[in-house]
Structure formats: C-alpha cells, structure tokens
Amino acid sequence: MKVSVRLFAGLREAAGRDELELELPDGARVADALAQVQHLAPGTSLVLAVNREYAARDVVLVEGDELAVVPPVSGGEVVEGELSLDAVAARVADPRAGAVVTFSGVTRDVDFLDYEAYAEMAGAKIDAIVAEAIERHGLCRAAADHRFGRVPLGEASVVVAASAPHRPEAFAGAREIIDRIKAEAPIWKREEGAWVEGTVPAEAPVAAPESPAPAAPDAPPAADPPPAAGPVLDVSVDARLEHGARVLVVSGSDEAVARVGWLGGRFHQLRCEEPFPAAARRGAVVEVRRLRDDELLGEATVLDPDAARHGPTNDALVRLVALERGDEPRPDASIAPPPLDAEAQALEQRYRDAGTQPPRDAELSPDERAALFALREAGRVVLLERGRHVHVDFGPA
C-alpha cells in the first residue's frame, strides 16, 4: 500500500519537501514506516503520529491513515500572532478560585525565535494536557496558548493560566501544563538558523492486543510469564507518572524498585521488582522517587496491596474509584459507579446519539475530556483503537 507521511522542522529540511510517499506491504506497522524515514535523522529517536496521536511501534497501519513523523519536540490553541496573557487569564476566571497562576515563556538573548507546529495535532494535544491537569490537580479552570511563526525578543511564545481554590494546586497545575507542552506537543523551535534539540515524546498509546494466531496441533502451550519478585500495588498518586518507567518506592527505611503502569487519571499500578512489606496494607502512603537522582515524583496511597497485573480497563477504573472512596467491592457483587455530573451526562448522550460513529478524542473540548474520564470511571464508555471511545451500547461484545 502507498501512504503519505508529513514531515516537519529538520526532517522537512533534510528531505526538501513537506511529505514523503512510502510504499509499505499490507499489514505494515509503525516501525516499518519509521525505518523508511530514519535516514533523514540518523541517530535521532523519531515517533510516528497516526491520525494525530502518538502511536506505538507495533500499531498496524491501514490505507487512509494520516501519518506524520515527529522529531524530538521543543515545545488550548496554537496561534499565529501575538499572545495575550490577560486574555488567557480571563478564560480561567471562576468564582470558586482563590488562586490564579499564570506563566509566560518569552524570547530572550536573541532577536527572534522561529516556531513550527503540526498545528492540527498540537492544538488537540494541548487541550488534552490541560484537561488532564484540571482533573489531576482539582483545578477550577486552565488554559494555554502556543504561538508559531516568528516570535521577536521579549514577546511570548507560550502562555499558561490555571485557577484553583488554593495556591498549591494552581502552581502545580500550571507547572504540569507547561512542562508537558514542552515535552509532548509537536512544536519545534529554531534559534539563529538551527533547530533546537528537544525531547522525544515519552508516551505513545499501547497498541490494542491482537488475537493470537492458532497454535499448531503439536505446539506446546506458551509458558506463563515469570511472576514479579515483589507485590503489585494498585495506587492513587497525586501526580502523573510516566507509563513504563522504573521508579523507587519508599516508605521509611523500606524501598523497592518498581515498574509503573498508568491506568488513567490519578490511578497507577506499581509492579515491585523486590519484596516491599511496608506497602502490604491498604491505605498505606508511600513515596515514588526517580531512580537516577531520588527526586520525589509523587505520593501514592495504596488501594490494593495484592493486585493482579492489569491495564486501564473501565472495570478496573470503577473498582479503583470504589476502593478509593472506602467501598469494599466483592467479586460476586456489582460495583456502584461514581455519580455523574451534568457535563458527563451530556457527553454520554452525545455518545449514545453518535452510535457506532463517535467523535475522536481529539475533537472533544477540554470540559468534555474531563467528563470522558468520569464516563470511563463509571464504565459507561469503552476505548476503541486510534483514540476513539464509544458508548457501551455500541461497543464490542
């Protein structure tokens, strides 16, 4: 099959064009497409965006996918022209707010900076970052704009505002938004004629598991994976941890290395690689620290000290919400989902009305993205491939 791949920043300049036509076999994966463009940036980690979402290397491509190669990024709304910090601050005004934090990133030391953006994807990515920060930090409102094109000395290239009942949440939310925009939004910066080295987006959606091929009649059964050396903890964390990262879990003098599994929102799974008796009880609070420099990443409350290994399913989210509010769900009893507010009920009706053709996640407003998480917690929508949720009435059996 033939696919077109959009190029940006240094890749576009290396190729001398905005797009490349690739010839790929049927069933080709993201890794196959990346292999054909790696020569444009030897030694540089690249990520492929499929339909405006970062995609894992094993995602299967199909004819008609919108593809873009994303080099390391150096990065609401993505706009051309001067930004207004006052206008962004006005968008987060809320009678519940006792604190409003604003941030403005401006050009310094040089006459100007040039920014290039994959605008269609960058706007949706910033919207998602803002919505997740609102949910994670309990913000009243938040907003962010990023400029592209030429930004003269002293003018803002990015502005962020966050409002919350108290200042710690407002500061934490604003900090997360700007840090994640710089790390994840497909925006590139050129300074004095050279593209500034950025960071590779840390997270890509995990490909949906494929049905295993039938085994040959004489084939031996597949071996079970070796059990973890330590406990598997389902936890609620006051920060977003990087999925797949190895971290240090600490309680007093006890500590254990663990692998992070992000389950959605504040919920994570810590898969300890060694015994860790301090976390063997529900309600225990442990610190999660970065391995390389012991920096505190967040505090985690243990919801299930003896969890099974699992991913971010709706049932798991419902169960974790129940555990967090003190319920004792039993395997033979249904778990009452958290109550839905008016925004979540309106979004659920939108999914019901859309049937089998629901909107893409990238098309949702920031408020709808927050409501989407509530629907997932309540088990009212299911995640389909390529960034699209659907109401349970129309989901897979």
Rank of each mutant, 00 (worst) to 15 (best):
A370H: 03
M1D: 03
L24F: 13
D65W: 00
S365T: 15
A90E: 15
D361R: 14
A90Y: 08
A14G: 04
V70P: 07
G355L: 10
P275E: 07
R289G: 12
E176N: 13
A15H: 02
H146F: 14
L372W: 02
D393W: 12
D218V: 02
L7M: 06
G264P: 02
L34D: 02
A33M: 09
D26E: 15
P358I: 05
V196M: 00
R376W: 12
V285Y: 01
E184M: 03
R360M: 09
T44A: 12
S236L: 14
F171Q: 00
E343W: 00
E377M: 10
R141A: 15
D127F: 01
E192H: 03
L46D: 04
H268W: 05
P71I: 01
E295I: 01
R380L: 10
S157T: 07
P227V: 12
A222I: 06
A279R: 06
E324H: 12
T199K: 11
R290W: 10
A342N: 06
P231Q: 03
A128L: 07
A229R: 08
S74W: 00
I178Q: 08
L248G: 05
A284F: 01
W188Q: 00
V60N: 01
V106R: 15
G98Q: 11
V100P: 00
P277Y: 05
D224A: 14
A213R: 10
E184G: 01
A174Q: 09
G149H: 02
I134F: 01
G16C: 11
P168S: 12
D332I: 14
S104Y: 14
E176C: 06
V321R: 15
A362C: 12
G98S: 05
A131C: 10
W195G: 00
V237Q: 06
A124Q: 08
F394D: 09
V73P: 00
V321Q: 09
P168L: 12
P220W: 07
V237N: 06
Q349N: 11
D294R: 15
A117K: 03
Y115F: 15
G43A: 07
V62N: 06
E184L: 12
G81S: 11
E21A: 15
A213I: 04
A49H: 01
